[in-house]
Design a protein around this nucleic acid. Structure first.
Length: 239
DNA sequence: CTCCCGCGTC
DNA sequence: GACGCAGGAG
């Protein structure tokens, strides 16, 4: 497929998703720190649960660098229990706060003012912050034009026919960044729309293809027409 | 029962 | 590539 065709199609897909779902107004978080805490807590967990955990931190007045620093990891884990893997994530929150405290005088803005490559490396150096979490922070807390890749992104664009199975994070990211204008607004809204499609319609096991605004361009659904009872049907098919 | 806006470790 | 982590909503 020609590069220009891919670019056109990616923008068409964006527009169709935007028309269908409307602007997502991401990230749901009032401050940069709240976005960062949410990005760490939402790893492999439904956002609904993350909200509960963040609200617990807010009620205790601990949603701050100093609050995270002074709170023992056991208490922190107890507060963020709804976000699952709470012992690991409590340690991750503290590790992040300690980085800001030690290297940036407790001033989050100093960390966030690093260049995009420097900030990404600084985040990835922390235990518990991998590529998706780092890029979510870069895009939604620091407003950098970085395309965020998640499980939904891979699944949707594999089904649409643009990606091979089992592609790595950077391969998927390069696909988008090399075929889209490098604009923070576009990357912000695009990822948010992908998440909306991924968790409401393009489900892993039983995708709701009849409701999908991208059905007319989906390779998987047009090839798959048997019922979803078979093993193959449940993993790949659209009913 | 399934599914969640993953990461570290081996 | 597999596994541990280890809650809550539908």
């Amino acid at each position: 497929m020609l590069k220009e065709d891919i670019r056109t199609e990616l923008l068409e897909i964006f527009q169709e998703l935007l028309d269908h779902f409307g602007p997502r107004h991401w990230w749901p978080g009032e401050t940069a720190l709240e976005v960062i805490v949410g990005a760490i807590l939402t790893q492999n967990v439904a956002w609904n649960n993350v909200e509960k955990a963040i609200n617990n931190l807010k009620e205790e007045g601990l949603l701050s660098i100093s609050g995270l620093i002074k709170t023992r990891v056991e208490k922190l884990g107890n507060l963020i229990r709804p976000a699952r893997y709470y012992n690991q994530k409590a340690a991750r929150l503290k590790a992040f706060a300690e980085l800001v405290n030690i290297k940036y005088e407790g001033d989050l803005e100093k960390l966030l003012s690093l260049s995009t490559p420097e900030l990404r490396m600084e985040l990835l150096a922390l235990k518990g912050i991998g590529p998706e979490t780092a890029d979510s922070i870069l895009l939604y807390a620091a407003n950098r034009p970085v395309f965020v890749v998640d499980a939904y992104t891979k699944r949707i664009f594999q089904r649409l026919g643009y990606l091979e199975a089992d592609v790595g994070y950077s391969v998927v990211q390069d696909f988008f960044t090399s075929n889209l204008p490098c604009e923070t607004y576009l990357f912000n809204e695009y990822h948010a729309l992908i998440v909306a499609l991924g968790n409401r319609i393009c489900l892993a096991r039983r995708p709701l293809c009849q409701k999908c605004p991208l059905l007319h361009r989906c390779k998987t659904s047009s090839l798959e027409k048997e019922n979803s009872e078979t093993a193959l049907g449940t993993t790949m098919g659209c009913t």
